[in-house]
Write a protein that binds this DNA or RNA. Structure first.
Length: 479
RNA sequence: GGCCCCAUCGUCUAGUGGUUAGGACACGGCUCUUUCAAGGCCGCGGCACGGGUUCGAGUCCCGUUGGGGCCA
């Protein structure tokens, strides 16, 4: 567990209405980072009061995505759906204290008022009629079972929010009307349950997406009505797709698990997300988690939105792959291998041969399988370009030369020398032999240095693959 | 429609009144090289616009434009 020496308490509060998006992940990450830096507590709260849209398995999905990314929380997960009593009690307290009131208008009446306002060109605002109902009457009508909502009595003064990232923001008093806290069916509404929970959980800092900024005056009014200290706010810029629109499924991989499945390492995504809106202040970009936790600060977080660039994520992932210890890289790439993985010693050597060539663990997994299974097919373009009339003859001579090579001399250097001798004797450039050989051994025209590959494959496998290739390129003999 | 937020290369960003505006991704070239990468070197490319304030604005203020959000 983490040392907690301050009273700083932050939370990440996702709605389980979809998988964890990178935007949400970044919000969670900044909360975590802030908590670590301040030696505070990071809380996870699932906002599942929207019964129609919330689903249990999505909640589990979010939890597993967070775990994978290393977004570990100190408290929770709390579920709002299990906290209805709290909201009900808070609503009653607010009514009793005159901070909120019952409103008995029917939806139809409100609709009429709205239409009238629009017709006369004014923007609609709730009349506040419920405010003027005497408490005894309100009480009596409620007890008689008359349908009503609960509304917050908004103050007449403007509300000022001191945002840690944006500075002072003033919202005019007439911009907000007495919004609904509790629906007529007794269901607490989003803004209400959020604030009641933040109070109950003693949240000191609310770090969340920009999309909640305009809701903040409501929350401030609610905290005050509840008689509780108002937390500090920090609103993060949105994460956008490459078309500058809010990142969504349309943009391709917007969910954390999609990146996991694409072979992105969690530490790379962690690093990448940390840098989407925050920078250490110097030119470092590859930062270990510990460094980020030590250096993160909200003062250095930018206010503007940022575009999620998959290209740069891929580059960063490649950096992590290049630097990761072989054993670990093997362990983490093996699950992505399309078929078998060679035995450990070979696999570790293969890792070293391919670590600068693989941007994802998927690519690394694919590279590993090449050393375990003979090619199932040969690259079509490569066949066209590299296989010439003289190719079978050359390959046969090479195979014969390799066959004769003593086991002790099966090294990249000797293998290269032997191939060059064969090419020299045949009066062709080495490339005429190198490229078809690569195709024969790996099925492709690209990859690690050929002689390292041949050496690693071993004599038996290399010769077998050349033989198979010769069969594949031999002209069909008439039956 | 009302209210609010945002604005440095295509993208992520450094920059907090005096900088040849720095770095990274991407892109182009060169190099290395059997291929593909990685690496190294070089290059392309930016302060949205208009007014102020100031001896001096990327930096401060106002407006415009453009993007975004919330409410309706």
């Amino acid at each position: 567990m983490h040392e907690k020496t301050s009273s700083v308490r932050v939370r990440f509060a996702p709605s389980p209405t979809g998988s964890l998006h990178v935007g949400g992940a970044r919000t969670a990450l900044y909360n975590l980072l802030f908590a670590r830096r301040e030696k505070g507590t990071f809380i996870l709260r699932i906002e599942d009061t929207d019964v129609e849209r919330s689903r249990e398995e999505l909640s589990a999905q979010i939890l597993s995505a967070m775990e994978w990314l290393g977004l570990d929380y100190d408290e929770g997960p709390y579920h709002q759906s299990k906290r209805y009593d709290l909201y009900r009690a808070a609503a009653e307290r607010l009514i009793a204290g005159g901070k909120a009131y019952r409103a008995f208008e029917t939806p139809e009446e409100l609709d009429t008022e709205r239409k009238a306002a629009e017709a006369s060109g004014r923007s609609y605002r709730y009349s506040g009629a419920g405010r003027r109902i005497p408490p005894e009457e309100s009480e009596r009508r409620a007890r008689a079972g008359e349908k009503h909502v609960v509304r917050l009595a908004m103050p007449a003064e403007p509300i000022v929010v001191e945002d840690l990232i944006r500075g002072r923001i003033e919202f005019p008093a007439d911009a907000l009307d007495d919004f609904i806290l509790v629906r007529s069916d007794g269901h607490p509404l989003y803004h209400f349950s959020v604030c009641v929970d933040d109070v109950d959980m003693r949240i000191t800092h609310v770090i969340r997406g920009d999309d909640h900024l305009a809701n903040t005056p409501k929350h401030v009014a609610l905290f005050r009505a509840l008689g509780s200290p108002v937390p500090r706010f920090a609103h993060l810029g949105m994460i956008l797709g490459t078309d500058k629109k809010k990142l969504s499924k349309r943009h391709g991989a917007a969910a954390v698990e999609e990146w996991r499945d694409a072979g992105i390492l969690p530490e790379a995504l962690f690093n990448f997300l940390a840098l989407l809106g925050w920078a250490p202040g110097d030119d470092r970009e590859i930062l270990a988690r510990g460094e980020i936790e030590r250096e993160f600060s909200l003062e250095r977080v930018g206010a503007s939105p940022s575009v999620f660039d998959p290209e740069k994520l891929l580059w960063m992932n490649a950096q992590y792959i290049a630097a990761m210890p072989g054993e670990e890289l093997l362990e983490r790439s093996a699950p992505y291998a399309p078929s078998a993985v060679p035995e450990r010693e070979t696999a570790l050597k293969a890792i070293e041969l391919h670590r600068t060539r693989a941007r994802t663990t998927i690519e690394m997994g694919r590279a590993l399988s090449v050393y375990a299974d003979d090619p199932a097919a040969y690259d079509a373009d490569g066949m066209k370009k590299q296989v010439k009339a003289e190719t079978p003859g050359l390959l046969q001579r090479l195979a014969a030369r390799y066959e004769a090579l003593p086991a002790g001399e099966w090294t990249p250097e000797r293998l290269e020398a032997a191939l060059r001798e064969v090419a020299g004797e045949a009066g062709v450039s080495a490339g005429k032999l190198i490229h078809p050989t690569r195709l024969a051994l790996t099925g492709t025209t690209v990859g690690a240095p050929l002689f390292d590959v041949v050496a690693l494959l071993g004599k038996e496998t290399a010769l077998r693959r050349i033989g198979k290739f010769l069969e594949a390129i031999a002209p069909r003999s008439p039956a």
